[in-house]
Design a protein around this nucleic acid. Structure first.
Lengths: 194, 194
DNA sequence: CCACGAATGTTAGTGACTAACATTGTGTCG
DNA sequence: CGACACAATGTTAGTCACTAACATTCGTGG
């Protein structure tokens, strides 16, 4: 799991490539960790040293503190849902360009498999709690905070996972910007209630 | 898995009781399926015939079609989010009394364990898709429908899972009615956006 | 060239889940 | 009331994700 030295980064990349390849070719379930490891010229053990679980190759979520801060920075006189909504929209511009090239491949694989959507939910739980705690620390009742965070993050996740099913998909070369646009749309939808 | 004959119902109940007991006493992870089966006077095999997975003892979600219909029955001139919101509120009164006695024990166990929250998400996915499809069949764009369904269901789930952390817990005898109240509050929160 | 630490390999094990086939119980019908 | 038929359980053997403890190689700096 030590992702510090250049050598480590290379093997990690090899494993990721091999995994995406095999998952796309034979499906996620039909692909064993041993196969992925072999295709990457590596042992099962090494696989698990770089990715804690099989699904962690496809799912990651490193943005917690950033998002929580962006939410807390919104005006206190707004309703909790609106506050999370605007906070996420504000944070989107900051982190979006970081999206790497494999993002869209991963989204497609995850969207296709129910068990993987669950893994995404598990990963999102951390972010959810970070946002909830930030609001609670600001005087928002815990229930309200939890509901607001879950609704907004759920909306974003759903938008991402709905992408492969969408009729129009212009410019498939750069998924990153496209991903951001869809998420923005999701949060805007939450704004126009009636 | 054949839950038809009275005998089958009895063993199923025994397994469920044993599972809740052991999960509460030693924790979910520390309890193996073999232990649960033994405590229920049954084999591992039989456990899996009644519950497809270990977590399915705690997670279930049989309401899909009902909810989807309730959502579709709402006025078409509303925004998708508002439509799902009102649909769920309307359906709540219908199904709430059905909640059985173990509901609150299950909620507490699930809320305590991150991996189980993922299982809930997986179970909710079916309901989510049912609602989404109902809206799409009604002319709502797929993205909008998916976002609305995910936001509202995410809000409800978050409210349920937040319950154990709530300061006031009056009347712990009947969790069912209490559960319904919390979900209702969640959906009302989504209504007051600004 | 050698030593030192990080990265990888090896082995052995646990636990959730599955498949194929044998066995027991339970209700029904003659 | 007894036998038949079928559902429910048991048995066995296996796969796969994941973990722990210890041995080995690789790469870099002295």
């Amino acid at each position: 799991m030590a992702t510090l030295t250049p050598r480590s980064l290379r093997t990690r990349a090899r494993i990721l490539d091999a995994a995406l390849d095999l998952f796309e070719r034979q499906g996620y379930d039909a692909t064993t960790v041993a196969q992925v490891a072999a295709a990457a010229g590596v042992t099962q053990m090494t696989f698990f040293r770089h990715f804690p679980t099989k699904d962690s190759v496809l799912v990651s979520d490193p943005y917690d503190p950033l998002l929580a801060r962006a939410v807390a920075a919104q005006p206190r006189d707004l309703g909790p849902v609106e506050r999370v909504r605007r906070g996420l929209l504000a944070a989107l511009g900051t982190i979006e360009p970081v999206e790497d090239a494999t993002a869209e491949r991963r989204v497609r694989l995850v969207a296709a498999h129910p068990a993987l959507r669950a893994a995404v939910a598990a990963a999102t739980a951390d972010t959810e709690r970070a946002i909830t705690d930030a609001l609670v620390a600001d005087g928002v009742p815990r229930l309200d905070a939890a509901v607001a965070a879950a609704a907004c993050l759920g909306a974003c996740t759903a938008a991402l996972l709905a992408m492969p099913d969408l009729p129009d998909r212009p410019d498939p070369t750069d998924g990153g910007r496209h991903l951001g646009a869809v998420v923005t749309r999701a949060l805007e939808l939450l704004g126009e209630s009636p």
